[in-house]
């Protein structure tokens, strides 16, 4: 089966402080679908996303977004091409209010409040005073205000209560239904597999397993081994 790839990585290799953290990674993440990237901590998933978004340099390989090569662009150009990246650890601008966090991205902030009505009441609160869940909503809203065609998310659920994680994931599902491509790095494998379409497992810097989410869900022993190998 061939899928029309929106984000396509091939042979991506990333070096950090002299050691290869990501080795020869190939991933196809189609538009309108959620692609899940699983793996134990330290497997190199964050490094991979950072490389694709332009936070750190990539040593080798290629990354195509709708066919145009990303790796020669700087962060701003990649963003303008339609790539959005939600970093790990809820990177709100702590000294800015909720509204300011949004307005610096786009003056049409009302869209954000449609996605997350919870934030309306917190409009003038400093982002540092939000709860973890609200911060993650803010970060997600900020990324979506950029009107991306492809969204990469690193650890959506980190430190959040299960209920909020569900809420955020269901939003992703509906956004994907509207055509957004998503590459999601997630520590809670089962949660991610339930909502995703395709999945890759990364360990020790390489992709060790790939397939549709339902395949992986139906074969937990293989998934388990991929984690523990």
């Amino acid at each position: 089966m061939t899928i029309s790839a929106d984000l396509e990585l091939a042979g991506v290799t990333i070096e950090r402080a002299g050691s290869l953290v990501v080795r020869d990674v190939a991933i196809k993440a189609p538009q309108g679908k959620i692609t899940v990237l699983l793996g134990p901590n330290g497997a190199g998933r964050t490094t991979l996303l950072e490389g694709v978004a332009g936070v750190i340099p990539v040593s080798e390989g290629s990354a195509l977004l709708r066919g145009s090569p990303l790796l020669d662009m700087d962060r701003l150009q990649r963003q303008r091409r339609g790539l959005s990246f939600v970093e790990q650890g809820r990177t709100v601008f702590a000294g800015l209010t909720v509204e300011e966090n949004l307005v610096i991205v786009s003056s049409r902030t009302q869209d954000a409040y449609l996605w997350f009505p919870e934030l309306v009441k917190r409009k003038d609160v400093l982002a540092s005073n939000l709860s973890g869940g609200e911060q993650q909503m803010l970060v997600l809203a900020r990324a979506l205000l950029c009107k991306p065609s492809f969204l990469m998310i690193d650890e959506l659920s980190l430190g959040l209560a299960p209920l909020i994680v569900q809420r955020l994931l269901s939003l992703l599902v509906s956004l994907a239904r509207d055509g957004l491509g998503v590459l999601l790095v997630e520590q809670y494998a089962n949660l991610a597999l339930e909502i995703g379409h395709y999945a890759y497992v990364m360990n020790h810097g390489s992709i060790v397993l790939g397939g549709t989410c339902s395949e992986l869900l139906s074969d937990p022993t293989t998934l388990h081994e991929a984690y523990l190998s």
Binding site: L76, Q79, E87, F93, G95, L96, E100, I104, R142, C146
Partner: peptide, 17 residues
């Protein structure tokens, strides 16, 4: 607000355009 954002997290600000 943009300036404060840049001073706080420059890379994140760039990722947001």
């Amino acid at each position: 607000a943009m300036l404060r954002a840049v001073s706080e997290r420059r890379i994140t600000a760039e990722l947001l355009g």
